[in-house]
Structures are given as structure tokens and as C-alpha cells.
Computed example of a mutant assay.
Amino acid sequence: MPNARALRRAHRRTATAELRNRRRANREHRDLTERIKVSEFLTILGMEESDVDRYGSVAGRYIVSEYRAAHHGHQPRQTRKRTKPCKGYPKGRWIKVFVYPLAHPALLAGCAKYKRTADYVPAA
């Protein structure tokens, strides 16, 4: 008859393997959904690159507030993006940016709230 320590160890190993398999399945599902940055979305809407550089950050703030309102305060997923070269950073620097599912309604709602990007949002 196995002792209590052996039973706990076996239970932990089983629970760990089950959690690993669950995470693997979630990762595969998560990778199937295409995610997009705000700058890419504004480019799709037809905004010029200079305007995206100029107004993209503020538009992103409006979009993230819409996302948080729709998801009970949760943050969207993050990724890293290299900025354009600037003084002190000849290769650009890495910053964290939010990414959203391509068809998420917060993208259009946030752009519609910001007056600089509202003209690019198609009428619904």
C-alpha cells in the first residue's frame, strides 16, 4: 500500500500534466485568431502613415478604454513593436503595444469617439 507522500506526488503529477494539456489546447485556439495593432488598423481604414504616427497613440487610448468597458476592466493582449529610428535610438526601440482581434467592435467604437479618426470609420 503506497504511503501518503507517494499519493500526493502522484496527484501533483497528474494535475500538472492535465494543466499542461489544457494550456496547450488554449494556446492553439488563441493562435488561430488574428490580432492586429492599432497602427495596422488605422492603415486599413485608409489613414496616411504620417497621420497614423501622429494620431495613432491617442486613438489607441480611446480603443483600449472601449475594450476595457466591454471586458469588465481587463486589458487586451500585448505584444512588442519596434519604433522608427530617432535620436539616441538609431535602430528604434522596443515598446509594448496592445493587439486586438481583427473584428473586435472596440476598434471601430474607439476610432469613432476620437475626432481625428472619426472621419475614417465607415458609417454603420
Rank of each mutant, 00 (worst) to 15 (best):
L42G: 07
Y120G: 06
A123K: 14
A6W: 06
P122R: 11
G92C: 04
L45H: 04
E48D: 12
A123T: 08
H71D: 10
A70E: 13
E18K: 15
Y100N: 01
A124G: 06
S50T: 04
H72K: 03
L102P: 01
G73V: 10
L107D: 10
L45G: 05
C86Q: 11
D31C: 13
R68T: 09
S50R: 13
S65I: 01
H74I: 03
D31V: 05
R8C: 00
T14Q: 08
A15G: 00
I36T: 12
H71V: 11
K113H: 03
R23W: 10
P101A: 15
R12P: 02
P2D: 03
G110C: 10
K91H: 15
G73M: 06
A124S: 08
S65P: 01
G46M: 09
D51R: 14
S50Q: 07
D53W: 05
R22N: 07
A6G: 00
L19T: 04
L7C: 01
R8P: 00
I36K: 10
K115H: 09
N21L: 13
A6T: 09
T43V: 10
P2C: 13
T43D: 11
I44G: 06
R20L: 14
H72I: 00
R54M: 12
Y67H: 04
G56N: 01
T83P: 02
L108T: 06
R54Q: 15
P105G: 12
V64G: 04
Y89I: 01
Q78M: 05
